Simulated scan of single mutants.
Amino acid sequence: MTVTALVLAGVRPGKDALAEFAGVSHKALIPVGGVAMLDRVVNALRASGRVGRIAVSIDRPELVTTEGVEIIRSKASLSESVAAAVAQLGTPLFVTTADHALLEPEWVRYFLDNTPDRTVSAALARDSVVMASTPGTKRTFLKLADGAFSGCNMFYFRDGEAVKAVEMWRSVEQLRKKPLKLLQKLGPRAVLDYALGRLTLARGVAAIERLSGVSAGVVEMPFGRAAVDVDKPADLILVRQIVEG
């Protein structure tokens, strides 16, 4: 079975400091190992053998020269872009980002093969796995009672009900680097459990389900580098060292 994939490649409102640092208009176009990050992601999706149709969401469609992909004009935020893509492409839909420059076909296969029977699923990796694979990286980890986790920029939307989760994403996407504020969004029970050191991953997912109104699940990835994306110059330098080293 193959799925449709969406690659988010637009720019957020305001200046893109990383794109300016690299001398390009869009972060997605920054070369790593001589290949634009967007193309590296598309190549990995194709090589996975699990992805058929590929769409790229970007605010300037004319910048995409990758062959064989569809273009969707991005919206003001990531969540709005995903909602528009779900409406146009349908489901099931695999979503990732153009700055996931280290993405490997094996990761895509593992995630899709282990996605639970839930409306929406996300990939996570434990801090120990991430740091063991990439000691030089600096990630933001959500510390829970049963471990500390980082997102891996891979999501699966099983059916049309997943749009409800996209609406929740819209409300919390600005808090992804601020764990405590994110917990506050999930409700007072989550904050209390976290303060007492008893908020587990399962309880956190349950809070997300209550907030979004849809079933949610996670796939714990055994690949630490799946949590490494390119958000800042230090990330770019590290990823280039890994690819070119």
Rank of each mutant, 00 (worst) to 15 (best):
H100L: 10
G197K: 10
A148C: 04
N114Q: 06
G151N: 15
A98Y: 14
A19K: 03
Q184T: 02
L63F: 02
A76E: 04
R240A: 15
V230N: 00
D127F: 13
A207T: 11
R158W: 03
L144S: 03
D117S: 10
R158A: 03
K15A: 14
F94K: 02
A83Q: 06
L6R: 08
R53V: 14
S79C: 13
L63R: 14
A17L: 06
M1P: 01
G49R: 12
T4V: 15
T200G: 12
Q174K: 11
A216D: 04
L183A: 14
A195P: 05
A36C: 15
G147R: 00
V64N: 01
R176Q: 13
V3N: 01
L180R: 09
V243A: 11
L192A: 09
T140I: 11
S121P: 06
K181T: 09
N153L: 12
R109F: 12
L8I: 14
V11S: 15
K143D: 12
R126F: 10
R126V: 04
V163D: 12
L175R: 12
A76N: 14
Y194D: 00
G197Y: 07
F157C: 13
P116V: 10
F21G: 00
V42M: 07
L186E: 00
L186N: 00
G151W: 04
V64L: 13
G34H: 13
L38Y: 05
V42K: 09
